[in-house]
């Protein structure tokens, strides 16, 4: 034998899943949504995504190499995902320097200052996004209208998002029937021919990606399904009470960041609970906060805030919702 025998403790075989593979599966799952955004927003979407990804990777590299002087881990795919998700939560046509600032916040503050991958409490991409939203509210809500097949950068024509339209309309005392005339049809919402952040527009593409993740066992159904069902039920109740004041559950789920949040942001492995029970609680929490913000808050959209708020509760959820220990309660009697 040329090389010495290896000794290690059992088990001696390991599954071939690696965290890297998980990360790249997420990237694959995001591709459909990215294609739709290219189709709808043209080159603008591409530029935003590229800038976000490159700057996230670059910041991770620079900070780890020169500031923290630790091992550089840009190869593990997590910074790549942060970049993509950050971009997906931004309007296309956002000034490039803002994207870079967002990436810096996401990687530098939300991720590395907590200790890097696995130690961050908040979803980095969302922190970046919310930081930008709070600092530059005007630019962050300047949604370019859909410029189907337009290869030039869209002029910053502000077309509102469906949720924005509803919120504004209702604030001025309009009724839903009037507002819905301005809204894109449900089919358009489903396919993605509407305004909004780069990644959130097409329900169809997001569903495809989400199903891919579930099939590949990267995520389980618990968070997305619970979150969407709870949202549907809550908005449904209000809608049944007064359909003139509240939008239908379908609109709520298809528009805004609900699907992107449910499948890609809330399920982020690091910042979601680790038990099935905990996941259910977590998802219900997100749904409730989202609906409350959407219906009663000042912002038309609340998924990002809801996820961040619930992220903060994850350590608590993990401590209180433990898996049931085997043998902790004897159910069956001795016959």
């Amino acid at each position: 034998m040329s090389q010495p025998i290896i000794i290690s403790a059992s088990p001696h075989v390991h599954s071939d899943r690696t965290s890297k593979k998980l990360m790249y599966d997420v990237v694959i799952a995001l591709i459909p949504a990215f294609l739709v955004s290219l189709y709808v927003f043209g080159i603008g979407a591409f530029i935003v995504t590229a800038v976000a990804v490159i700057s996230c990777l670059l910041f991770e590299y620079l900070i780890q190499k020169f500031l923290l002087k630790t091992e550089v881990t840009i190869g593990d795919g997590s910074a790549l995902i942060t970049g993509i998700l950050l971009a997906f939560n931004l309007p296309s046509g956002l000034p490039i320097w803002m994207i870079i600032v967002g990436s810096l916040v996401a990687i530098g503050i939300a991720k590395l200052s907590f200790g890097g991958l696995g130690f961050n409490i908040f979803n980095p991409a969302l922190v970046g996004r919310v930081f930008l939203l709070v600092s530059f509210p005007v630019q962050m809500t300047m949604w370019p209208t859909a410029v189907v097949n337009n290869t030039s950068i869209a002029d910053a024509v502000t077309g509102a998002t469906p949720l924005g339209l509803i919120k504004e309309g209702l604030m001025f005392g309009d009724t839903m029937t009037n507002i819905s005339a301005d809204l894109p049809s449900n089919i358009d919402l489903f396919i993605g021919l509407t305004g909004g952040s780069i990644g959130e527009i097409s329900a169809l593409a997001l569903l495809l990606g989400g199903i891919y993740l579930i099939v590949r066992k990267v995520i389980t159904w618990h968070i997305p399904v619970t979150m969407l069902v709870t949202m549907a039920v809550m908005t449904g109740i209000f809608w049944l009470i007064n359909p003139e004041q509240y939008a239908s559950p379908l609109i709520h789920i298809l528009s805004g960041g609900a699907l992107l949040g449910a499948f890609f942001m809330a399920t982020d492995l690091v910042t979601s609970p680790m038990t099935k029970k905990g996941m259910l609680i977590f998802a219900i929490g997100i749904a409730v906060i989202t609906v409350v913000i959407r219906l009663f808050g000042a912002y038309p959209e609340g998924v990002s805030f809801a996820i961040l708020i619930m992220n903060a509760f994850v350590p608590l959820i993990n401590t209180y919702f433990k898996p049931r220990r085997f043998g902790s309660k004897i159910k069956s009697k001795i016959v």
Partner: peptide, 21 residues
């Protein structure tokens, strides 16, 4: 060295696994 140890690099744990490299 006659063998190679793979696992956490602490004496306490590797001593539990076997007699050393």
């Amino acid at each position: 060295k006659t063998t190679e140890y793979q696992g956490p690099r602490t004496c306490a744990i590797s001593a539990m696994v076997y007699s050393g490299e």
